[in-house]
């Protein structure tokens, strides 16, 4: 018997993988309850200290939304790929004619949907608890969209790279969470950047989170006058786009270099 019929295309298989990924993601109750809602819990706790006037709420919500999508992309995807390596998902997929590109498309769909859901959750909390106002200017939403996409893409790729360093699923959360927490400290999420020593400011400026948060602050600020409160005195959106873009390219190159199907050394 020879295979006459053509194998399914990369994209349609990617969509099928995405559906399955989402189904598994939202069925993991512990994951949804604890990991997914963690940024919202932190927002509630820290917000009750930080938010003393409306503009604080706007700025803090923007930064927390930045931190939230890094949680779903960098940490969430990193853990999920490490788990796929550990539980045999990747091993089994490799025995099938599924192309690796379809696997990545499936992961991309999962991360995008999870990140959008995270944004919705954080926005909901921000509006209900801190009376945050949502921008009405379409230009602001355009900024929001590109910052969101570049942030999710670059951090997803970096999460996959870091997950290759983790030896097992058990170590993956620790390996991914440490850089994530450090980044939140030095990127203006927990503490305003101007309060940080110069060396930490410089370190934060290298990584994506700082630029995602700054981009989102430009969206949620009542007016562009608040840009003066940023370290550079402006939103630096061009620089943000450039740095996030560079990280996306670097991440893509590193993923293709470091991706492993399995944990064993061969």
């Amino acid at each position: 018997m020879t295979t006459v019929a053509a194998l399914p295309g990369v994209l349609s298989l990617g969509l099928a993988r995405g559906g399955t990924e989402l189904r598994e993601f939202f069925r993991q109750k512990e994951n949804v309850v604890f990991t997914f809602s963690l940024p919202a819990v932190i927002m509630l706790l820290l917000g009750s200290v930080y938010v003393t006037e409306p503009i604080h709420g706007q700025m803090f919500a923007a930064s927390m939304i930045g931190a939230g999508i890094i949680s779903t992309s960098f940490v969430g995807l990193g853990i999920s790929v490490a788990a796929d390596r550990e539980d045999g998902t990747l091993k089994r997929l490799r025995t099938t004619p599924m192309p690796l590109a379809s696997y990545f498309i499936g992961k991309a769909i999962m991360v995008l949907v999870a990140s959008l859901a995270e944004v919705a959750l954080l926005l909901g909390v921000a509006i209900l608890r801190f009376d945050v106002e949502v921008p009405t200017d379409p230009a602001k939403w355009l900024t929001f969209t590109w910052v969101f996409l570049l942030g999710v893409v670059s951090c997803s790729l970096l999460g996959m790279v870091v997950s290759s360093i983790a030896r097992s699923t058990r170590s993956a959360p620790a390996v991914l969470n440490l850089p994530y927490i450090i980044l939140q400290f030095i990127s203006g999420v927990f503490i305003t950047i101007s309060a940080l020593p110069g060396s930490l400011q410089t370190a934060g400026a290298i990584f994506p989170l700082r630029w995602v948060c700054q981009g989102f602050r430009s969206v949620f600020a009542f007016s562009d006058e608040y840009a003066l409160q940023e370290v550079a005195g402006s939103w630096e959106l061009g620089k943000a786009a450039l740095i996030l873009g560079v990280w996306s390219v670097v991440g893509l190159v590193l993923v293709t270099r470091t991706f492993r199907w399995h944990n064993e050394r061969r």
């Binding site: 349609s12 399955t20 189904r23 069925r27 539980d87 045999g88 998902t89 091993k91 089994r92 099938t96």
Partner: peptide, 22 residues
């Protein structure tokens, strides 16, 4: 292998069927 823990048996088999031509 302990993959696809949260899928049902039928979902899992149906999903893998999609990878093949016939």
């Amino acid at each position: 292998a302990n993959d696809a823990a949260e899928l049902t048996v039928a979902e899992s088999v149906r999903h893998y069927a999609k990878y093949y031509a016939d």
